[in-house]
Structure formats: structure tokens, C-alpha cells
Design a protein around this nucleic acid. Structure first.
Lengths: 210, 210
DNA sequence: TATTTTTGTGACTGGCGGTCATAATGTGAC
DNA sequence: GTCACATTATGACCGCCAGTCACAAAAATA
């Protein structure tokens, strides 16, 4: 048993090694031309071995994306915002999430790749489920706060889905902006973008009194 | 001269033919596996001929994307919204733009492809300029309305960039949602998404009184 | 040590984007 | 009509990649 455990651990450690090597290469602008063979070389193993751990390049990228979002979920509840008024609390969370994206910019190509329409379309059911679980975590984290804030009249009363969809769209667009900004027509520094987006999101969050 | 003109026209017509053939193939879910050779076959010409018109597959896709946005610019001013109050006018425009995306769903893979971080990173200067010009058209179309609405107190006074960034992010996220919805965990029908997003955007547009 | 099982490997396959020598076509002088 | 020349179209070819698989190396077991 102890042997199986050790082997198991070694196997998993190697998986982490591959992921680390892959992220190192996939964080470079030329990431599209990074082949599995190069990842294998970086991890100092053979190409075939990579396929013992990940059944496709897509799965390797998907696992990296999962690591990114799980890391985000971990950092979120650390900052205690209970004592703040709801709107301030959400503002802090928005800032945290956007900041996390800025600080973990090395994942940008990977995360964007996994957000592509056709990546999603060919994603296996288990991947969709993993993704849904993350979405759900966010919902569980924020929905009680939202409902309470509506009850207290701090934000306009309306179907919670409206806020979900609005914030999700805004986040997605904002992240794309932050991650692409250096390469494309810049729309300002990261800080400027964050500040502007957050003001806009807060306004959308509060909503208009009926 | 007349001959050059005719040849020129024929050449351009063939370019349109290639673009049409390409869109037909690139609008299918398997678009990623569509090679230039298949596009050529669809257009009933040789592979090399395609490269006489477009210096790379990227350029072909870029030209298609331009067609999409130019089409959008054309449809926008058709709907006269001058007489409406600013907020209602913007609401109508939001709806028009989102509707245009829904109705021209066949461009979704192409437009998404050209929005990728690394596509933008390797884009030639002339492509960036073409894109900037489109952005500018949107600005010229909406900025006067925005400033007037601020003056009249219909929306909160603040730097116009805040609205730009917020709306742009929201649009981008919303479009992604609409275009991916069928393939991914659905967040509602197109109509529901549009309605929710628009409410959110309007709230963000109006902003909070200081 | 000998045998079996597990794990690691890189040569190989089919298919891609892009190139380029060559073929096909069109043009204008005579 | 024909011929020399210019223009345009072509697909065989190159280097490269994702993924496979027959086999080699290593580890476990006897």
C-alpha cells in the first residue's frame, strides 16, 4: 500500500512538473507554436510520457486553466469584507478578482484559449462539470450578499440573473481588455482600466430604482 | 484602361468569391479544421490562387472580420433615434448591436478568432489601423450623444472613457455569451440574455449621482 | 537472479500553412 | 491567324505538429 501511495505521489508530482513546464512555455507570446514535444523537453521527459498524463493538448491546457480559477477561489474569501456595506464589499471583491488576473498574467493565453467558442464546444462533459462547479462556487459566495443587499435596499431589487449576466459579461470583457492591452491599441494603464470598469460595474450592480 | 478596370473588377469579384466560400466553411463548428486548400476547393480555384489574394490565412480571416464590423456600422445609423431621450436612444442602439450579432452568427468563429490576444499581438500595423478606424467611427457616433446626455443630466457626469471602457467590456462579454450559449452551459435564451445585459448596461450608463 | 508487470519513449502517420517552379491563359504586334 | 511575351493559376513540395504505438527500460515480485 505504502508503495502504491509513493508511486501515486510521484506520478502526481510529475504531473505538476509537466504543468509547470507547460505554463512556462505557454505564457510566452509565441505560445501558439509551442508543441507538446517542447513541453516534454522542458519537463525533461519524453513526448509519449506527456500523453500518459494528459490525453490531449486540450486537456493539458484545461488543467492549467482549472489551476488558475482554483487559485482565484482560494484568494477570494481571505479578504474579509463582512463588516463593510454591501456595495463597498462588492467593490473590494471586483478589485481583488481583477487584480488576481493582472498578477497572474502568465495564464492569459491559456485561460483565453479555454474560453474560445470551439474549445467549449468540444469540451468533454467532465470538463463542463468542473467548470460549472467553479461557477457555482462564485454564486454561493456572492448570492447571499446580493440578496441581503437588495433586502436592505442598498441595490435595486430585480432578478438575480440580471446581475449575474451583467457582472459576468463585464468581467469577461474587462479581463480581455487588461490582458490584451499591451499588445493592442491601449485604452489606458491597468489601474485606469480597473478603476473605470469598477465604477461602471458598481453602477450596474446598484441599478436604477424602478 | 478599360481592360485594366475590367481585370481589376474581376480580381476583386474573385476576392469576394473567396471570402464567401471561406465564410461558408468558417461558420461551421468544425471551422478549425478547415484548411486553405478546402477554402480553395469550395471557391473552385487552386490553393496557390488564394495566396495571390491574401498573404496568409490570418489576413483572410481579418478581411472577413472587417466585413462583419463594416456591416454593423452600416446598419447602425439607419434607425433614427434622435427624437428619443438619450437613455432610450442608447438602449435602442444596444439592442441593435446585440441583435446584429445574433443575426450574423455565422461570423462568430471568425470574429472571435480575430479577437484573440495572440492574433492581435501579431497583427500588422495596417490591420490595427483599420480596426482603430472602426473604433473611432463608433466613438464619433456615440460621444456627442453621451456628452449631451451628461449636460442635460440624463446620465451621471464623469470622464467619457469610463463609459467607453464599461460599455466595451460589457458588449464584449455579452457577445461572447450570446455566441457561445448554445455550446456551453446555457445562461438563458438569447432574448433573456439581451434583456438582462441591456438593463445592466443602462444602469452602468446612467451611473450613480455623486 | 529470473520473470513479470509497469512505466517511459521517440519514430512514425496524416494533415496543416505557406512557397515556388511551372503550366495555363490572356494580350497585342504583325 | 499566329507568335512572343506578360500575367495569372496551380498543386507538388517543405518543415512542422498532434497524437499513436511497438518496443525498451525499469521496477516489482518470486
Amino acid at each position: 500500500m505504502a508503495i502504491i501511495d509513493r508511486k501515486q505521489r510521484e506520478f502526481e508530482r510529475r504531473e505538476e512538473d509537466i504543468l509547470d513546464a507547460a505554463l512556462l512555455l505557454f505564457s510566452q507570446p509565441n505560445w501558439e507554436s509551442v508543441s507538446i514535444e517542447k513541453v516534454a523537453k522542458q519537463a525533461q521527459i519524453g513526448k509519449g510520457t506527456v500523453y500518459k498524463h494528459f490525453e490531449s493538448k486540450d486537456e493539458l491546457l484545461f488543467k492549467l486553466m482549472l489551476r488558475f480559477y482554483q487559485g482565484m477561489l482560494v484568494t477570494l474569501p481571505l479578504k474579509q469584507t463582512q463588516s463593510l456595506p454591501a456595495v463597498e464589499s462588492f467593490k473590494t471583491i471586483f478589485e481583488l478578482v481583477l487584480q488576481y488576473h493582472i498578477e497572474n498574467r502568465e495564464y492569459r493565453y491559456v485561460v483565453e484559449y479555454c474560453g474560445r467558442i470551439d474549445f467549449k464546444a468540444r469540451a468533454k462533459k467532465s470538463w463542463r462539470d468542473a467548470f460549472k462547479a467553479i461557477d457555482q462556487s462564485f454564486g454561493e459566495f456572492s448570492d447571499p450578499k446580493l440578496l441581503e443587499a437588495m433586502e436592505k435596499g442598498e441595490i435595486a431589487k430585480r432578478p438575480i440573473e440580471e446581475i449575474h449576466v451583467g457582472l459576468a459579461a463585464c468581467f469577461e470583457g474587462a479581463v480581455n481588455m487588461l490582458w490584451a492591452s499591451t499588445d493592442w491599441c491601449s485604452v489606458g494603464t491597468d489601474e485606469e482600466i480597473v478603476e473605470r470598469i469598477i465604477n461602471f460595474m458598481v453602477a450596474g450592480l446598484i441599478g436604477q430604482p424602478k
